[in-house]
C-alpha cells in the first residue's frame, strides 16, 4: 500500500538519517515531494511511503521514537467544497492531478490522496476556499 504523510521534525531529530533507516531497515519506498526546514526550529517533510501495512506501521513507530510527529497528509488539506462554484482555477495549477474537473459534469473532484501540499491552489482559488498548511 501507499500512504502520504507530513513529518514534523524537532531540531534534535534533524541530524538523524531518517529516510535512510526507513528504506534500509523497514524496506519502504519513500518519495519526498515537499520539504521545509526552518533552521533552529523544526523541519517539515511531505512524503509518500510504499510498503506492506506492517512495514509502514513499524517505520512510523521508529520515526515517532526519534521525536518526529507523523500525521496523514489529508489532515493538512481543507476545501470548503459547499462554497465552490466549479470555475476550475485550482485545476489549472494542480500539477499532481489531485484537482480535476469531471469531464461530464464539469464539477470539481478533489482526490486528496494525490495532493502533494504544494499550496498552489490556495492562491489560485478566486474564492480562497483552500486551507492548506504544509507548515503549520
Amino acid at each position: 500500500m501507499k500512504s502520504r504523510y507530513v513529518f514534523v521534525f524537532p531540531t534534535e531529530a534533524i541530524n538523524k538519517p531518517l529516510t535512510y533507516h526507513l528504506v534500509k531497515d523497514f524496506d519502504l519506498k519513500v518519495n519526498i515531494f515537499n520539504a521545509y526546514i526552518n533552521s533552529g526550529e523544526e523541519g517539515n517533510l511531505a512524503l509518500e511511503i510504499e510498503g506492506s501495512p506492517g512495514q509502514i506501521q513499524a517505520g512510523l513507530e521508529f520515526a515517532k521514537s526519534l521525536g518526529v510527529e507523523c500525521s496523514t497528509l489529508d489532515k493538512r488539506v481543507k476545501l470548503e467544497h459547499d462554497r465552490c462554484i466549479n470555475c476550475g482555477a485550482c485545476v489549472a495549477v494542480c500539477y499532481s492531478d489531485a484537482l480535476k474537473m469531471d469531464a461530464n459534469t464539469m464539477e470539481l473532484n478533489f482526490d486528496k490522496d494525490k495532493c502533494t501540499v504544494c499550496e498552489l491552489c490556495t492562491t489560485a482559488c478566486p474564492l480562497q476556499l483552500f486551507k492548506i498548511n504544509f507548515v503549520e
Partner: peptide
C-alpha cells in the same frame, strides 16, 4: 492540462 475559469456547471 486545461482549466475553464468560467463555471460550466
Amino acid at each position: 492540462r486545461t482549466a475553464p475559469l468560467s463555471s460550466i456547471s
